[in-house]
């Protein structure tokens, strides 16, 4: 038992290390074409801000949206966007798995002594994806400057934990989506509904949406734990479903459960691929 856990841990650490050096190689090769990289990084950073400009335009017409001020919505936007950006930075190329299955290049990953998950995740690692994290972070900082929150140690910890577990939950959605493609190779777009759709949803206050939808992202696809529930606690607001208070603190636990599920789905998918080879 102990031996099995130690072996798992060793494989995991080796996967992380391998991810590091594969991604590092991609970064180095991108930086070799510095101008190209700089144009892209700046362009991406600037255009991601357009997304938030949309929300600012909304607030040029109204004082509050669903009872939330611009600064509060910015807090939701910043946390959602940063968490999503982190997942996108590290696991954003996962939707290519269907292509890899179709053109057979997945086979070449299976004959190397590195976990396939790490190889797929690190493939084409693009530093320009930092643009989204930077944008999310900037909006978050801006909102913190305008919000009137009393920053206790608990709230600081809660916010930090929210960003990390939010990134992990989104990352699990990427892995789950990738695993799903082992069965339905052309269905990569379904993933967008949960990743891009998810981050868009979480940028707005939950009070805007139908209760069934909110219930769905709490109990079915646990995206509400990315920021909604903990962020409402930080902002000192009630959640529209009236859930018990401890739920707001459950994000790290939910993230761990998601990891287990995503890992399981990935293993299942890879096993299915290795028995059908299609």
């Amino acid at each position: 038992m102990v031996e099995a856990i130690r072996r798992r841990a060793a494989v995991f650490l080796w996967g992380v290390r391998a991810y590091g050096f594969i991604a590092g190689m991609w970064v180095r090769s991108t930086l070799a074409y510095r101008t190209s990289f700089l144009i892209m990084a700046t362009g991406n950073l600037l255009t991601t801000f357009l997304d938030f400009v949309g929300i600012m335009i909304m607030f040029s017409h109204v004082e509050t949206l669903g009872g939330f001020t611009l600064a509060e919505v910015a807090f939701l936007y910043g946390t959602s966007s940063t968490a999503f950006g982190l997942a996108d930075l590290f696991l954003g190329t996962f939707d290519r798995i269907g292509t890899r299955i179709r053109d057979g290049t997945l086979d070449t990953l299976l004959v190397r002594p590195v976990p396939v998950l790490a190889q797929v995740a690190a493939d084409r690692f693009a530093l320009r994806r930092l643009g989204r994290v930077a944008q999310g972070g900037a909006v978050l900082v801006w909102s913190l400057l305008r919000l009137d929150i009393e920053w206790t140690a608990g709230r600081v910890l809660l916010t930090a934990a929210m960003l990390v577990s939010g990134g992990v939950i989104f990352g699990c959605v990427f892995v789950l989506g990738g695993a799903f493609q082992f069965w339905a190779q052309d269905a990569s777009e379904v993933q967008n509904a949960f990743t891009y759709g998810g981050t868009t949803l979480l940028q707005y206050p939950p009070t805007l949406f139908a209760r069934e939808l909110v219930r769905g992202v709490v109990f079915v696809v646990p995206l509400a734990f990315v920021n909604w529930l903990p962020a409402l606690r930080v902002l000192g607001r009630e959640d529209p479903l009236g859930l018990p208070g401890w739920v707001d603190l459950a994000s790290p636990a939910v993230a761990l459960v998601c990891c287990a599920l995503a890992g399981l789905a990935w293993r299942r998918g890879l096993r299915a691929y290795r028995s059908t080879g299609s």
């Binding site: 074409y33 990084a41 362009g43 991406n44 255009t47 357009l50 693009a126 320009r128």
Partner: peptide, 16 residues
């Protein structure tokens, strides 16, 4: 070199 970056740029401009 990075045609993915160009696509992202094009998408963001288009959506907005």
């Amino acid at each position: 070199l990075d045609s993915h970056g160009v696509s992202t740029l094009s998408t963001l401009l288009g959506v907005f």
